[in-house]
Design a protein around this nucleic acid. Structure first.
Lengths: 380, 380
DNA sequence: AATCTTATGTAAATTCCTTTACAAAAGGTT
DNA sequence: AACCTTTTGTAAAGGAATTTACATAAGATT
């Protein structure tokens, strides 16, 4: 109940990095007088900064305002299957002090978490302790969002039930947010590339297969936090292929990196990792290309199902498998447009990702900024 | 901008039919003084009524307040494949003046809409014109929610592009809401039976197959209004069965009423309608029972996919096919629990519907009350 | 009966925001 | 240079909701 009008002004900046005083009036509904006063207070309090002047519309130039990027910072720790990335984001989403190290997630949490906190402390040197607003941790597995615990992760061996939130909280004493990696990626795509698309799906085809959902402009996690689990949809009447999830004939057992590597091994190829596979594809190996095309067709079936159920206006395809060959995206498009219902595919666009490999970190930054700055700022 | 505090008080009654002044304070955040004053004004204006006194908690009894059911009314017109139901709802959701007539939707809109407006005018006799807040129309096909138009309906022959909203608006000059029948059903289930479940799916297995989605407590329509189209998910590597949607091997072509009737015809049975099929099932015809079980298994696959993608905490199965035999629900449960991922099925409940055949009308009433009374009340 | 407890009513002072009105800054147009 | 337009600042008056304080209603507890 502290100061409702100043928090309304701050909230107006969510999704809008730059606003003039007039735009703040329009979006908050506050009067010109109040906006004028509150903005001045927030500038004095270093929460907002006066940014560039905008070109004139026939009269006085408007002054563009922005959240002061240095008002506070978000600590980020992002685990992929094979690496750990530590970084810090300011309130504009700018990433600094990024450090990426090899870390095999399947080697368990002990050393990984130890290193994570140490390196994050390094990355935070020079930042006043009170300016650390919170920490976002991204992991390649299902998380229970409420409790901050990893649950039944298929590839994070040894992490089941580990309370990652608690670990970071012990050291830093700030709010900690644990989130699935694909969810962070779809947040990045939505906030940075497609902020005006209300319903979109991001499908990641890499070692495993997963998807993240933006519904009505917000991340949708589902009741247990497992929404978007497209990888373990089962395709029917097929070969009885065992999947690492315990079922069989999951999409993952046909279209994922690990499944394709296994298949190539069985065919006598000397491949060990997804990277080996990608190299072969880039060299134009005919058999590998054929396999990728087949994989695209299978995941296309699952995406078509997803499109029928969700009716999104955009599907983003991402991941090392989808980027190994141009045919993958093309084949997915063909299959989805052929199989999804006419209505659902009418205004549907299927595209590749426009972000670089830092998309997970960018998503973590966006999530952190929104959660800690826009929603949870007590009465700072 | 009229009177924010009185509309905040009214809004508090959304989803809470009875509230005491204290509870209104808690949910609106308004002060005791303001609530006291505003409630008195609203009682004087006949918007609220003093309901029963509640049992004492050790002191003075609380006075329960409620929206005055007779403050306004919602007109309802609900089309199924074979009937049209006209009714009126008060603001408590109580249905009155219900009239159900045979109407084959495939005979087109002309006579149907003519009758609908006439009968609705009859049903509204005795209600002051200014008390009609709006009209909700339910139809068994996809609708463009924004414009109030039916689009590409598979079973509503002749209705494509018909602006139903405009037709009713011409006669009644009040806001008109067009909504898909399954969406109305899932609204009814959520608001009346499971108000505290945030994510749920209702699957209707009747002549056709469809589903409606409640996400984060609200109806989810998707970008084109076609979300929940579970009936035209394609099952793979199967028999190349043509579906009435133009594709082949859709769930509908295996598990729907019309598909089963066709199949029985092909087997020499003398069945013409889904009702004939249901009669046979109730008589315990072994072959029909076997077919129903098979149908349940197929739709179970699609529901499992849906569960993986949405991670709801409840799935409601409804419709004449699912109610034709107890085995249908049982088989669906088996298939879904076996196929859906462990995490998504962990806290999942699959249940039959607890509402009667008026569920669509009840949903229309709920939708109308929320849209017209809680959201769109200019400054009445 | 006397005394809690809970639920509500009302008057006075205060805070916050709005409306209204007057100004000024800073550019474009003629 | 004179006059637009757009954007922002500020002071004064008014309204709406809050806090504070006092009061009452009505049942439970002892």
């Amino acid at each position: 109940m502290a100061e409702s009008s100043s928090s309304r002004v701050i909230l107006a900046f969510r999704g809008h990095p730059f606003l003039t005083r007039q735009e703040i009036q329009d979006s908050t509904g506050l009067s010109r007088v109040t906006v004028s006063q509150v903005v001045q207070e927030l500038i004095d309090g270093k929460v907002l900064t006066e940014a560039d002047q905008l070109p004139s519309n026939g009269g006085r130039k408007a002054n563009s305002l922005a959240i002061n990027p240095n008002y506070g910072f978000i600590g980020i720790c992002y685990f992929s299957a094979t690496t750990m990335t530590i970084a810090v984001s300011d309130l504009s989403g700018q990433i600094k002090n990024k450090r990426r190290e090899i870390n095999l997630i399947e080697e368990g949490p002990n050393l990984a978490l130890q290193n994570a906190t140490n390196w994050l402390q390094d990355a935070l040197k020079g930042i006043t302790k009170s300016k650390l607003l919170g920490i976002v941790v991204g992991v390649p597995g299902p998380v229970e969002h409420q409790s901050g615990v990893v649950i039944n992760p298929p590839i994070m061996r040894g992490w089941d039930g580990i309370n990652i939130r608690e670990h970071f909280f012990q050291t830093f004493k700030v709010p900690v947010f644990l989130e699935n990696d694909v969810n962070l990626m779809v947040i990045a795509e939505h906030r940075l590339i497609y902020p005006d698309i209300d319903n979109l799906i991001l499908v990641k085809m890499s070692t495993g297969i997963g998807s993240g959902l933006i519904i009505d402009g917000r991340l949708y996690r589902g009741s247990q936090g497992s929404a978007g689990d497209i990888g373990h949809i089962q395709l029917d009447a097929l070969k009885g292929l065992p999947c690492r999830c315990g079922h069989h004939d999951c999409v993952e057992s046909f279209s994922s990196g690990w499944a394709l590597v296994e298949k190539l091994k069985g065919m006598g190829y000397k491949v060990k990792t997804v990277s080996d596979l990608v190299s072969l594809a880039r060299k134009g190996d005919a058999e590998v290309t054929r396999l990728l095309n087949e994989a695209a067709s299978y995941i296309g079936h699952a995406i078509a199902d997803s499109v029928n159920l969700f009716n999104p206006s955009k599907v983003i395809i991402q991941g090392r498998i989808s980027e190994a060959s141009d045919r993958v995206l093309a084949t997915i498009k063909e299959v989805v447009y052929q199989r999804a219902s006419a209505l659902a595919s009418k205004n549907l666009e299927i595209v590749g990702s426009k972000l670089d490999e830092d998309r997970g970190i960018n998503g973590a930054a966006q999530l952190g900024i929104e959660e800690f700055f826009f929603l949870n700022r007590g009465n700072a």
